[in-house]
């Protein structure tokens, strides 16, 4: 069974590129254009990984991350912050909220794919 990835991003071109990359890596991809939609998508079906922008309309990435990590059922969802905010305090805040990784834009597509696979495999080893 393929792992599923939720991309929460409002920049259409970035969404397009991420969709392409994730599909190519064999992952199922869903998209949310804003924070609120991202939470709704998770409620519908729990993804394995969320790629989360911070500057999202309606509910920002920090808040979404907090919602995920503070929910016991969702806590095992891997959250990767994918953002143009490069300041240390933003990274620190994300990690404090329980994010599993923090990748700044522009990112290397290969590294991003590797990191996503690494996280889901970790999970599998832990499950085994």
């Amino acid at each position: 069974m393929a792992y599923s990835v939720l991309v929460a991003e409002d920049e259409p071109n970035i969404v397009l590129s991420l969709q392409f990359i994730m599909k190519k890596a064999g992952l199922n991809v869903r998209v949310a254009e804003n924070g609120a939609q991202a939470v709704r998508e998770i409620e519908i079906e729990k993804p394995d990984v969320v790629l989360l922008d911070i500057m999202l309309p309606k509910q920002d990435g920090f808040s979404v991350c907090e919602t995920i990590k503070s929910n016991a059922e969702w806590a095992d969802i891997k959250v990767i912050m994918l953002t143009a905010k490069s300041r240390d305090e933003d990274r620190q805040r994300a990690m404090d909220l329980g994010a599993d990784d923090y990748i700044t834009k522009p990112f290397s597509t290969r590294e991003l794919v590797d990191r996503v696979l690494e996280l889901v495999n970790e999970d599998r080893i832990a499950d085994a």
């Binding site: 920049e11 700044t104 834009k105 522009p106 990112f107």
Partner: peptide
């Protein structure tokens, strides 16, 4: 500066991602 950096990074992200693809 942080805002400018954010604004510059956003188009750059698309450019880099599609270039690599």
């Amino acid at each position: 500066l942080s805002t400018i950096s954010h604004e510059l990074r956003t188009p750059l992200t698309s450019i880099r991602a599609f270039s690599e693809i």
